[in-house]
């Protein structure tokens, strides 16, 4: 135990020769140097094999019980991700609450970056993900939580989508990576669409701010027409109906309470009717985008299939289990309940 080398973050990438490249970030203790972690890399066929190879490179015995983050490179995630998660499920010492994320491009460079704010890269990345979870930008998913969803034919997984901004040596959360069954589809939701998806799934808003331009571009300073606001409350109702032609309809009602945080143009109270209209149009359009993107990816993030199984088992039996989600007709209805103007009118 004393000589153990802790693994805090693991990355999986697929090389051009279809082999698995595993990276492991291990913290280096009691060093005065600013770089406080070391990256071990191994190429192998499976994670288990890679572990054996990594063990030879590590100074102590590898201990994965503190592995709290698993980063999947894009090329790796587009294949079935479940078989190689087996090693995480099987070993009783592994942490099942490890977070998972898909990385744009390769995952390995992410654990090699040197962050100025936090010398331990694993902690830096984990904090990045957890704060994005806190502000309802990405779903809170861990290795154990996705297991049920990924095996469920009636629901699909969504995972955080992260990018390395190589110029600034920073990682940033891009949005949500959309999965179809066990594979990443290549489609993702951007940072404005992602919170909306989570709200549409019934999540409670936290620090979700949006901004958009609703003035006419002809004006001298169109930038001054931009309004920024925060969603303070949200209430979602989802209603699933199947009509006589076996067409599945999903009515999505979303009621929002907003608070304006910036309105350079002046009087919120006076422009309230106009704002309400514009907000409704904005969110209806955004919802349309989210649903369109989900259907393109064939990612049943709402678990419509699961609901069909539960409430309309006969309909589900006769359905094409692979493509059913694309046939679902969504009718979103966004209601802006209140606009709060802050302390200024």
């Amino acid at each position: 135990m004393k000589n153990a080398t802790l693994v805090q973050t693991v990355t999986y990438d697929l090389t051009s020769k279809k082999r698995l490249r595993v990276g492991a970030a291990t913290p280096v203790l009691n060093s005065a140097d600013s770089l406080q972690n070391m990256t071990l890399v191994a190429e192998a066929n499976t994670p288990g094999e890679a572990r054996i190879l990594l063990n030879r490179k590590a100074s102590g015995l590898l201990d994965s019980s503190k592995n709290k983050l698993l980063l999947l490179g894009e090329a790796y995630a587009v294949h079935d991700i479940l078989p190689f998660l087996d090693i995480h499920y099987r070993n009783p010492r592994n942490a099942l609450d490890a977070r998972l994320a898909v990385v744009k491009g390769e995952a390995l460079p992410l654990i090699q970056l040197r962050s100025k704010s936090e010398s331990n890269v694993s902690r830096y990345l984990l904090n990045l993900i957890q704060s994005a979870e806190e502000s309802l930008l990405i779903p809170k998913e861990d290795i154990q939580a996705i297991a049920s969803v990924i095996m469920d034919p009636g629901e699909d997984v969504t995972l955080p989508y992260i990018e390395l901004e190589s110029s600034s040596q920073l990682a940033s959360v891009k949005g949500i990576a959309l999965f179809d069954k066990r594979k990443y589809t290549g489609f993702y939701l951007n940072d404005t669409q992602s919170p909306l998806l989570l709200l549409l799934k019934g999540g409670k808003p936290r620090q979700n701010s949006f901004s958009f331009n609703f003035g006419s571009p002809k004006e001298e300073f169109p930038q001054r027409q931009i309004v920024s606001f925060l969603i303070t409350k949200s209430n979602r109702k989802l209603k699933l109906t199947v009509d006589e032609h076996k067409q599945i309809h999903v009515a999505l009602h979303l009621k929002l309470v907003l608070r304006v945080i910036e309105y350079p143009n002046g009087d919120v109270e006076a422009d309230k009717d106009k704002l309400l209209r514009e907000y409704k149009a904005y969110f209806t359009k955004l919802t349309g985008e989210v649903i369109h993107q989900l259907q393109r990816a064939n990612c049943d993030a709402f678990g419509i299939g699961r609901m069909l199984m539960a409430y309309h088992p006969d309909v589900w039996r006769g359905l094409d289990k692979e493509q059913y989600f694309r046939q679902v007709k969504f009718s979103p209805n966004i209601v802006i309940d209140k606009i709060k103007s802050g302390i200024e009118h």
Partner: peptide, 13 residues
């Protein structure tokens, strides 16, 4: 906390 109550439906299928 992480439960999905739809998993037990439909009953006695």
């Amino acid at each position: 906390r992480n439960a999905n109550f739809l998993y037990i439906l439909p009953v006695a299928q």
